[in-house]
Design a protein around this nucleic acid. Structure first.
Lengths: 127, 127
DNA sequence: AGCCAACGATTACGCGTGTAAACGAATTGT
DNA sequence: ACAATTCGTTTACACGCGTAATCGTTGGCT
């Protein structure tokens, strides 16, 4: 059971990031990285790993005395649902209004614009 | 006190949307809209208005026996912090990777692409 | 003057989350 | 074999949020 996609919280997503970057990994390695990056205590990381397990977002495979954790939810899927959600909530589900917003806020430098243009050209080429 | 910008939750943002659309408004009007759109009870809307007041996101001006509510936080600012937050969390703070992501997920139709191109051209013209 | 209606303020309550500590079982070193 | 260490599991706890109900006050109506 648990066919339903459960939400991954902000703190949990930090754990996912670590596993997406390289997995499978023992809890120890995950802890080491998150302790360094976020100052999280061991218990915190353990809790997050367990919650992710319950949510079906990761799996744990026994490897001798310990477990190796790996993501079940793909990073692309996660990123997609998060960004689509934001677009839906704030920009009528479309990208252009978001870009327009950033432009109005002067958050686009010429380099960004050039990069976007290259991207669009490439998309056209591929199609 | 309360110089710090407090976070606006999802439900609260629905109230903000109503006030951004047209304000000032008495609670009754806000309620009417949200009851219709989301089926929220009176108490729910009152709570949300109060939380927004405490957070400093809206103001209430006495108008006879009731209050008229109006936003203090601008919609643009809200949209900006939300979208910048997402970009920072998922796309290294940059727009291009997001657009690239959408393209890979085949969420960009030719019309979207054309619109983006027009946007970029317009930005260039303005600068 | 007293009661009712309207409206804001206070209180409630379960769930998810951030942040851990404590507990228990298994393994390894002595 | 026993103790210490190492992992995973269970329990904890405060806070924000979604979702209201109830309380209290004030102004209007009779």
């Amino acid at each position: 059971m648990d066919t339903n996609p459960q939400r991954i919280s902000a703190a949990e997503s930090e754990v996912m990031k670590v596993l997406w970057a390289d997995s499978p990994k023992p809890a120890e390695d995950v802890l080491a990285i998150l302790a360094k990056d976020h100052g999280w205590a061991e218990g915190t990381v353990k809790t997050l790993l367990n919650r992710l397990l319950k949510k079906g977002a990761i799996a744990a495979d026994k490897d001798g005395r310990r477990f190796l954790y790996r993501p079940l939810v793909g990073r692309e899927d996660y990123v997609d649902s998060e960004s689509q959600g934001l677009l839906d909530r704030l920009f009528d589900g479309r990208l252009a209004p978001l870009v327009s917003h950033f432009s109005k806020r002067e958050k686009l430098n010429p380099e960004d614009i050039a990069e976007l243009r290259r991207l669009l050209d490439k998309i056209d080429d591929d199609q």
